[in-house]
Amino acid sequence: MRLGDVPSGSEVRVCCLDGAGPIARRLAEMGFVPGTLIEVVRRAPLSDPIEFRLRGYLVSLRREEALLIRVHSTLSDPSAIGQAPAGDASDR
């Protein structure tokens, strides 16, 4: 599942980031790192960009960038996330 497809009002956990380069770096620095809890707050009119809450603050991303972020549902075991980078990397 990718963050750009998660319906508003739900919570997910970051699994990993696709892609490299400045945008992936900035997303990570803004707190989108494996294991982080993200709440999808709302979508702007015309459903883009999307507002998220994480680490106690609000940030908006376009759907395009949010699709770079792979997420898990919060129901899966958080301790397993981010611990298996090899597996994540192989299906890129």
């Binding site: 980031l17 490299a20 992936a24 770096r25 982080t36 090899a86 192989s90």
Partner: peptide, 16 residues
């Protein structure tokens, strides 16, 4: 060879 780039690893470790 596999897994995260250094950039990802560094930011992840910092946040942890």
């Amino acid at each position: 060879r596999i897994g995260r780039t250094f950039t990802e690893a560094v930011t992840h470790t910092r946040y942890t």
